[in-house]
């Protein structure tokens, strides 16, 4: 089966993972063989802000992997990685009104894209083309693919593993270095 059709496979049942406040539909598990294996190393947590009722105890994970490519590693012409990601949650109560909209953004928030909304099982699968990125889920009136940024409260957010590649200035062997010499304030 081509991978493109896998992406379009309904993600129902992905979150039959827990009790509590989850609202997963029963009996709709997707066959395991259809799910790519996200390298654990590049998974990251989706952390609730507690600003939206019913979501404070949510536990979320973003699985990250490369979409199919002939080359084994998916990059764009500028060399940025192209990632597929999948969100899955436990104990996430979906809103009675409005929608949980998924956004991807660069870590300095200078580029923001609305990429979709959580399914009625609280799942999502999408793509991102930045080496460092945030995934943000907000509570909006509705999903608007043209929206330039969110208006509603942030429900959960997570940062790509690459966000841990922080500056060495002031750390370890560079502890005695003058950070200002390297462009830092």
């Amino acid at each position: 089966m081509p991978w493109s059709s896998l992406i379009l496979t309904p993600l129902v049942g992905l979150l039959v993972l827990g009790a509590g406040e989850a609202t997963a539909a029963p009996g709709t598990e997707v066959a395991e063989c259809l799910q790519p294996a996200s390298p654990d190393y590049y998974q990251f947590a989706m952390v609730p802000t507690g600003r939206v009722p019913g979501t404070g105890n949510a536990r979320g994970t973003a699985d990250v992997w490369f979409p199919h490519t002939p080359f084994g590693v998916a990059v764009s012409p500028d060399g940025s990685y192209r990632y597929q990601f999948r969100l899955r949650f436990e104990r996430l109560r979906l809103p009675r009104q409005g929608s949980f909209v998924v956004w991807v953004t660069t870590t300095d928030l200078d580029q923001v894209e609305a990429v979709g909304e959580l399914s009625d099982t609280g799942a999502f699968e999408g793509e991102v083309g930045w080496n460092k990125f945030l995934v943000v889920v907000t509570h909006e009136d509705a999903f608007d693919p043209e929206a330039v940024t969110w208006k509603g409260p942030v429900v959960v957010r997570g940062m790509s593993r690459s966000g841990m590649m922080h500056t060495m200035a002031g750390h370890g062997p560079f502890e005695q270095e003058k950070c200002s010499s390297y462009g830092y304030e």
Partner: peptide, 9 residues
């Protein structure tokens, strides 16, 4: 996209 390990970028 090259890596600058010092700046983490």
């Amino acid at each position: 996209q090259a890596v600058n390990h010092f700046r983490g970028e």
